[in-house]
Write a protein that binds this DNA or RNA. Structure first.
Lengths: 243, 243
DNA sequence: CGTCATGTTGAAGTACGTCAATGGGGGTGG
DNA sequence: CCACCCCCATTGACGTACTTCAACATGACG
């Protein structure tokens, strides 16, 4: 049973931009199906070509890059609404992997249709570029935080940014959101060791800044977190596109 | 005196993709002029809107992000052929600055024309998305190196990557290329202190891996550098677009 | 009841940062 | 021509924020 783009549950959220009828028809034409995958599935593999592109409808994942020495960098957490695989479409191969952390539901597109989208629906093509530019912005922010800030601020930033993104996606209820990732994932995202990430997390808990228990994340004092994390967490404003 | 897009000196290099006549005409229509700036000029300012977009015709610069605590992260070095300002066009404000390191010559476009480009020249719009995806790839690679590798490998990676990019742009002659940046710039790019960057550089010189004197960079032993830098330096293959 | 994955905590080592001083070029002004 | 200054590269000494190693606790699962 496939969701019709007109009833897309994500589209309802006012975070996302609406579509004109013409655009909606085009979307229906590009969507080739839906896909459900289990936790641990490698959706896209570093070094591989992928004939498919995805939009996340539900579930969480990590983007990660594995180096030749075996160490890995988590470059971002993946939330509903994210578009996956553009890199493989435009460069030849994926330069990072995407691994599902929870069960996921994905909207599937064909890579070979991408060029057609640019030709017949420039507004959707523009949206796609928008998403690429946002991703670029996220990575730039992460680079600055990891390059310049000490552990306490890195951890606070990492969790606060995830929370804010979750909030925009409708994952926050009653002041908390799911955080199904392991501390090892967080550590690899922040360029810290597991042990030190854990100890830093304890400090944030002891200071009553952040709550993280049983896969549930809470920001206990957003003002003090904002003061601690000097890097502005800039999120895209209203009308984020969705493909 | 303005260079005609048909005689663009960059376009001649086979690194860059050729244009069909129609595309060339469109490019001429979008180009609003040329601009020359002096070293130290802030071309784009973090937090500001910019009505203009640029393609670098000549000269070098740095993209950088300044944090509230005053520390700065250099997110990339800017070479001829790079496109600047897409972020401001798509988000509302620039989230990083671009500062000229040398004299520069720039091709100038109007931000407000961007949408028209998507509508009338989908092939150029596709190229633009291509450039955004490449920039995203660069940042992901940088994140992995800075997050996971120690100083020696970071410095080697940073210099090797610049050299390879310079090579593609035609800046390499007789086995060396210009490197007009200060060690402080390199340090800020790699998330290291100035002092430690300098000491690490000395090691690379002593090991006869890399030469860096008087603003001139040489890779003295590419095989051993590749072995040291375990992160693959992946560069886009033939037919890179240019706007 | 064992095994495995994850979280937690302590102790010891080290790669890095900060502080501080020196030296060399390139300007500018006397 | 020299005196002065500023920017940048260099080098040594010292402190510390982090890593690694290791042990133990807990819950899930077969």
């Amino acid at each position: 049973m496939v969701t019709d783009c007109g009833n897309c549950p994500l589209r309802d959220r006012d975070t996302f931009k609406g579509l004109k009828d013409r655009e909606l028809d085009a979307m229906r034409g590009f969507k080739t199906g839906e896909m459900k995958i289990e936790p641990g599935t490698i959706l896209l593999m570093q070094g591989a070509r992928s004939p498919q592109l995805f939009t996340v409808l539900d579930g969480l994942a990590v983007r990660q890059k594995t180096l030749q020495n075996g160490r890995r960098q988590v470059t971002n957490f993946v939330l509903p609404g994210d578009f996956l695989g553009l890199q493989a479409a435009v460069m030849d191969e994926m330069q990072h992997s995407v691994e599902a952390t929870t069960k996921m539901t994905l909207c599937v597109f064909k890579r070979s249709d991408l060029w057609r989208l640019f030709k017949v629906q420039p507004s959707l093509a523009y949206d796609l570029t928008w998403l690429a530019a946002i991703e670029e912005h996220f990575l730039g922010e992460a680079l600055a935080v990891i390059g310049q800030l000490p552990a306490l601020q890195r951890v606070a930033w990492g969790l606060a940014r995830f929370y804010h993104r979750a909030e925009m996606t409708g994952l926050v209820e009653a002041g908390h959101c799911p955080f199904p990732f392991r501390q090892q994932d967080l550590a690899d995202a922040l360029g810290l060791s597991l042990v030190h990430t854990n100890k830093t997390l304890q400090k944030l808990r002891a200071d009553r800044l952040i709550g993280l228990e049983d896969g549930t994340l809470r920001l206990l004092d957003r003002d003090r977190i904002a003061a601690l994390v000097e890097a502005d967490i800039v999120l895209p404003e209203g009308g984020r596109p969705l493909l």
